[in-house]
Design a protein around this nucleic acid. Structure first.
Lengths: 116, 116
DNA sequence: GATTGTTATACATCAAAATGAATAACGCAT
DNA sequence: ATGCGTTATTCATTTTGATGTATAACAATC
């Protein structure tokens, strides 16, 4: 490589200045979808259950439609399910991030090489 | 407005995973340039002198050429000066950020409106 | 040599965020 | 009714980052 510098960028969707979606929350949604519970998802991601629960709570409260439906008690003690709307959010966020990262890569290729 | 959601993104230049430049550091460079000292710049930005000094130190160490030249003792007790190379970094970083922010705005305009 | 204002450095303190531990609530199954 | 596993909630603790305080080093000026 010509130089050791790189451009990195992070993106998030906010509602009135408060974080609605970011990479970590989307990953959480994916894990909830694949494991069926907030608890398992949090373990899978090595984060505390409290944080995972808080993220889900915030996302649901900020969203016009819930992203996660939570059930307690019942068959396996309960669980959590990502709604159709939630799955749409996952896909759309990742599409946005893909475009964004492509833009950032292009920025780095175009500009960084002529600085150093 | 049609919906209360917005996309925000932050960008930084890294060297081997360590932050080299970001918005705060560029603002610090600008303040050093206009005030002539790390101390005054830190006060202007309401950050501690230690943090400002650490940022300058890290930037200089990561950079192939120093961004800030520091002098102690002497006329006004010393001071700090942004090098020509440092000023180039300011201009180039802000150009990168401007393009980046334009990209992000476009992303938000194109995509957010068709979600909510 | 004393004064002056900044850089440079160390260390204690504070603040915010994340974590861990503990417990209640819940509802299906047995 | 009891057991089960998850959600929901509280609170103490830990961790991490930033801040405040104090002091030495420095070099021109007086």
């Amino acid at each position: 490589m010509r130089h050791p510098f790189s451009i990195t960028a992070t993106l998030e969707v906010e509602k009135e200045g408060i974080c609605f979606l970011n990479a970590k929350r989307i990953e959480l949604l994916r894990q909830i979808k694949s494991t069926g519970s907030i608890l398992s998802a949090s373990k899978e991601m090595c984060m505390s259950y409290q944080q995972a629960w808080t993220f889900v709570q915030q996302m649901n409260l900020l969203s016009p439609l819930p992203l996660v439906i939570r059930k307690r008690g019942g068959v396996n003690g309960g669980g959590a399910e990502v709604t159709r709307f939630g799955q749409d959010m996952i896909e759309r966020f990742e599409k946005i991030v893909a475009i964004h990262q492509a833009n950032v890569r292009q920025l780095g290729d175009e500009i960084l090489f002529c600085i150093f």
